[in-house]
Design a binder for these strands. Sequence first.
DNA 1: CCTGCCGATGGGCAAATACTCGATCAAGGG
DNA 2: CCCTTGATCGAGTATTTGCCCATCGGCAGG
Lengths: 319, 319
Amino acid sequence: MTTGRFTPEATRLDDAARAGWLYYVAGNTQDEIARKLGVSRQSAQRLVAMAVSEKLVKVRLDHPIARCMDLALSVQQKYGLTQCEVVPSDPEAPDLLTGIAIAAASELERVLKSDERKIISLGTGRSLKATVEQLPRMSCPQHIVVSRLGNMMSDGSASPFNATIQLAERIGAPHYPYPLPVLAHDSDELTTMKSQEAVRNTIALCERADLSLVGIGQMDMTAPLHVDGFVDNAEMQELADAGAVGEITSWVYDAQGRIIDCAFNRRVASAPLPRAEDRPVVAIASGEAKLPAIRAALLGGLVNGLITSEATAERLLAR
Amino acid sequence: MTTGRFTPEATRLDDAARAGWLYYVAGNTQDEIARKLGVSRQSAQRLVAMAVSEKLVKVRLDHPIARCMDLALSVQQKYGLTQCEVVPSDPEAPDLLTGIAIAAASELERVLKSDERKIISLGTGRSLKATVEQLPRMSCPQHIVVSRLGNMMSDGSASPFNATIQLAERIGAPHYPYPLPVLAHDSDELTTMKSQEAVRNTIALCERADLSLVGIGQMDMTAPLHVDGFVDNAEMQELADAGAVGEITSWVYDAQGRIIDCAFNRRVASAPLPRAEDRPVVAIASGEAKLPAIRAALLGGLVNGLITSEATAERLLAR
DNA sequence: CCTGCCGATGGGCAAATACTCGATCAAGGG
DNA sequence: CCCTTGATCGAGTATTTGCCCATCGGCAGG
C-alpha cells in the first residue's frame, strides 16, 4: 500500500469523494450523507462542496447545445462581451440564417416582454430582417422602435432589408424611421441634415436605446454596401486600402475595430454607435465571409453582444 | 438544416439543456437561469429537472472512491445486504487488511458515538484484531462489548486474535468474554455448558447485539480453524467432503450459506448467528482465498453487511 | 359555437442547501 | 512554556430548491 495512503488529507479527500458520490450519484440529501458518514450536516455540506471545488465531480451535458454554451462563454470572456449566444450550425449549411435569427428573436422577445418602456434600435441587413420574421406577433405599445440608419437606396427606393417598420408593425409599437439617406454627398450636407430637429430626436433615441440589434457587413466584393450599390468599385478599393474590414450601420472600421477616419465615414449619415458599456449593442452575424469583420468589431468594442453560429464562434476562438 | 429542428419538443429540450448547462456548468441559480431564459423560476426549475430526467447531464466522479461506491451499491443490491462498504485495493497488495480495518473501525466508531447503550458483539480473527487496532481511544462506558465465541486455543492458551478485550479496554466499556472454549468434546457436554447462567446471559447479549462484527474463515488448508489447531487434517477433509466452504465464528456452512448439519457444528460452542434482519451482522473479510466463503455467507444471509476490498467486491460481482 | 380535457404556468410553502459567525483545537514559533 | 496562526466545527440564518395546487389557454369533440 502506498505510503501516505492514510494521511489526513487523503482521508479528507476520500470523504469528499464519498459525499460527492452519495450526493450526485446516489441522490442522497446532505442530511442522509451526514448520517451515513457520521458527521454533522454542515460537514457533509462542506464535503460535497469540496468534491466540487476539488474537481472530483465532472458534469457533462449530452446535447449539442452544451458545446454552444461552452463556445459562447469562451467568446464572451475572450472579447469581454456582456452577452453572447451561439447557435448550433448545420454542418451542411453552416451559414444559414434561420438558427441565429431564432435566437436573436427570442432575445428580442425577452426584452419586449418587459412592462417598462424599452427603446429598441435596429440596423439593417438580412440577419435583422430574418430575425424580425421569427418574432411572433405581440402587443407591445409601451415600447419604441427606432432605426439607426436610413433605408434609402441610391436610386431612391427603400431598402428591402430594413426591418424597423416590420418589427414595429409586428409588435404594435410606434416606430421612428431614420429620416435621412444612408450617405450624404459630403460632410457639409451631413451637418445640415443633422441639424434638423427630427434627425436630432431620432439620434437621441438611438443613443438611449435599451437594446440595439445590428448586422455586421464584410468589406470584400460581396459586401452588402457594395452589392446594394452604396459603394462603387473604386471607393471599395479605396476603403480596402485604408484598412477597412467591416461595417456596422455603414460605419466602416479597420481590423482593430476602430472607425476609420476617411472620406466615406464623413459622409455616413447613420446614428453614431453607442459607446456606453451598459447600452446593449448586439451584433447578429455569422459566416466565414464576415469573420474578419466580426472579430474586428468585437476587438474594438463596437458591440458588446454577439449572436452567432457554432462554426463562426469556433473560428473566433481559433489561434 | 434538419427537418424538425425547430419543433416545440426540440426547442424544449434545447432549453432544458441550456438550463442544465447554466445550472451545472456555469453555476447559476435557478433564479438567474429564469431571468436569462426569460421564463419564471418554476419553469427554470422544471427545465433543470428535465435535463436531469432526460439524462442530458452526466456526473462522473474522478476518484478511486467512486468506483468503490459503485461496487458497494452493486454488491449490496445483488446480495440483498443492508449495508456494504468497499475499500480501494492497492493493486500491489490487494489483500492487505489495513484498508478494510480502517473502514470497519470508522463504521464501529460511528455506532460508538451514540449516547444510547449499544451492545457490540465480536467474532475473532485477524480482520477483527486489525479493526480494533485502528480504533482511536474513546470513552464509551455506556456501551457493552461481548464476544460471540470462546478464545481458548486447544492447548488452553488464549487466542491472540480475540479482539473483545482490546476493544473494551480502548473504549472504556464493560466487556463480556465468552465463557466457553471454542469447541465442546461432544454435544452432550455442550448442552451442559450452555445451561450455565453466565453462558445463557452472554448468548442472550449476543442475540440482542446492536452491531455484530465477524470475520469469515475459508475452509481449505489455510483455514484459520486449521492453522490455529482447532481442526486436524482428517476432520478438515471430512468437512470438505460435507460441502463446507466457510465458517463464521466457527459455524461451518456450505456453498449456499447453509449451516451444515454435522458432527463438528454440533460441538461448536459459539453463540448462534442472529437471523433477525434488523440486527446488523457485518462481515469484515477480503482476499482471493476467502472468496467462496464470503460469497456463500452472503447468499445464505448469514450476514447482512459486508466490508471488503475493491478486488474482492469485483470478484463477488463477476459472472 | 360551446364544453370539457390536457398540459403548462406561476404562487406559495416546506424542505434542503449555502453562508456567516464565534468557539475550539492542533501545530508551529518565540 | 505560552502564544499566535490557521483550520475546522456547529449553531443560526439567509437563500435556494422541490413540490403541490389553483388557474390558464389551446384543442378536440359535440
